[in-house]
């Protein structure tokens, strides 16, 4: 695989999104000429797992059967928790702030008061969703890889049923901002807001694939083995 010897710094230059991917895996800047292979060895990251996450960000959605071991699932959990933190402390507050900014440009305009409220409700919905994963799913996953899930009355298929769609409202938000809200001297801040929403949406979409297709699949395999 020629990917192995690609320099990570160059990958970032070609796809800036990888900055945040690497950060979530505990790989920080100052990368010198290290290759993917170097980074994976240094940080004990399963190479195939890394390449799969990388490919998802290159819009390639093929998921290989990864045969993940306990330590790889721990890496995955770290990646997902770090993503959650990023959403809660950076991505979502940033969007909130930008909506408030537009609202302040269009002072007392009910449309924007409602828009603020709309996003606030969405935010609560997403936070609830993330909290469920952090309090129920991730501890369960840890229990499965440590072989003490028997006392927990839960299975990963329940998670799949519970995994609701948190992207639909972002689409509505985009349509409102792009199509329906009349222009009111707010082009710059509205464009800025939209670019942040696009970025967050792409991030969430890949996040969902990682959870549903990689994590759930790996845990199902372990559940079968354990039982």
């Amino acid at each position: 695989m020629d990917n192995l010897n690609k320099k990570v710094a160059e990958l970032i230059i070609n796809n800036p999104f990888l900055l945040i991917v690497l950060e979530r895996l505990g790989v920080f800047l100052g990368l010198q000429d290290k290759t993917i292979n170097d980074i994976c060895i240094e940080h004990k990251i399963n190479l195939n797992l890394f390449l799969t996450i990388y490919n998802l960000h290159e819009n390639e959605n093929e998921i290989l059967d990864l045969h993940l071991k306990a330590e790889d699932i721990n890496t995955l959990l770290k990646y997902l928790s770090n993503s959650h933190n990023y959403y809660k402390t950076e991505a979502i507050p940033k969007i909130s702030k930008k909506i408030k900014k537009i609202s302040s440009i269009n002072k007392n305009d009910l449309t924007y008061i409602l828009l603020e409220r709309f996003f606030e409700e969405y935010k609560q919905e997403v936070f609830k969703h993330l909290e469920y994963e952090e309090k129920i799913v991730f501890p369960y996953v840890s229990a499965v890889i440590n072989h003490n899930s028997k006392q927990l009355d839960y299975s990963i298929s329940e998670y799949k049923n519970h995994h609701d769609d948190i992207e639909a409202k972002l689409l509505e938000l985009k349509n409102l901002l792009i199509k329906h809200l009349p222009y009111k001297n707010d082009q710059k801040s509205r464009r800025d807001l939209l670019l942040n929403i696009f970025h967050f949406e792409k991030d969430l979409r890949i996040h969902t694939i990682i959870e549903e297709d990689i994590l759930v699949h790996a845990i199902k395999n372990l559940e079968n083995k354990n039982s």
Partner: peptide, 14 residues
Amino acid sequence: GIKSTAAMAIFAVA
């Protein structure tokens, strides 16, 4: 391209 009544309300007011 909007489904929820909350988004429809924003559309209607705007």
